[in-house]
């Protein structure tokens, strides 16, 4: 008996009755603050590869050479919509939700350092790392084309019978070398720090 009374009371609440007769489900839209797949803002990409560096999902983003310059491309099905690339990009090429607005207002950013290590006992000197490295390809087109490097400006090359790291500071930490090393001989350590600039004076 008590439960019947309870249910009657439950169903004859005016709120419920109103809802029942004027049922309206919310339209199937995503709110503006939802971090969707990053979209291009139209700003120029400088191919610094920071987005590729910070991306935690394998194969989710690549900076490709398109007509009229470089352009990051997002691969749905790989992208996990974390928004780190949007936050990390120094040029603001990508945009997602309201991350850009929030980070520019709070002056938050990521700064990063990279270290390269090669395990000579595992390395076959196949040169996959040197040739696949996007920075190397940019610095020395001959290396990209023929697998031969004569330039000393590349990050790493096979010199003196081993992979010699010449310019660690040029590394953008994209880990392409690590992913394309069949023997797991080369490792990239990325050290990322979340930083925030001084608060702007209240204006």
């Amino acid at each position: 008996m008590r439960s019947i009374v309870y249910y009657l009371r439950e169903f004859f609440r005016p709120e419920w009755v109103r809802k029942f007769f004027f049922a309206k489900t919310a339209p199937l839209v995503a709110p503006s603050y939802f971090k969707d797949y990053p979209s291009l803002t139209g700003k120029e990409c400088t191919q610094c590869l920071t987005c590729m560096m910070i991306c935690p999902a394998p194969g989710a983003i690549a900076v490709l050479h398109k007509k009229g310059g470089w352009e990051p491309e997002i691969y749905p099905g790989h992208c996990i919509r974390c928004g780190l690339c949007v936050e990390a990009c120094p040029e603001g090429v990508l945009s997602s939700g309201r991350i850009l607005d929030v980070t520019s207002r709070d002056r938050t950013a990521f700064s990063s350092w990279y270290r390269l290590q090669v395990d000579d006992t595992l390395c076959m000197r196949c040169g996959n790392c040197c040739v696949s490295c996007p920075v190397n390809r940019e610095v020395d087109p001959q290396l990209a084309g023929t697998g031969t490097s004569a330039s000393d400006e590349v990050i790493m090359r096979i010199e003196g019978g081993r992979v010699t790291i010449l310019h660690e500071e040029k590394c953008t930490g994209c880990k392409t070398c690590e992913n394309n090393c069949p023997n797991r001989a080369i490792r990239v350590a990325r050290m990322v720090e979340g930083i925030q600039g001084e608060e702007e004076a209240e204006a």
Binding site: M124, C126, G127, N128, V131, S132, A144, G145, T146, G147
Partner: peptide, 13 residues
């Protein structure tokens, strides 16, 4: 053929 991939097939431009 360690350099086959880096010189001719996979990575070369």
């Amino acid at each position: 053929h360690p350099r086959h991939l880096s010189r001719y097939t996979r990575y070369a431009e």
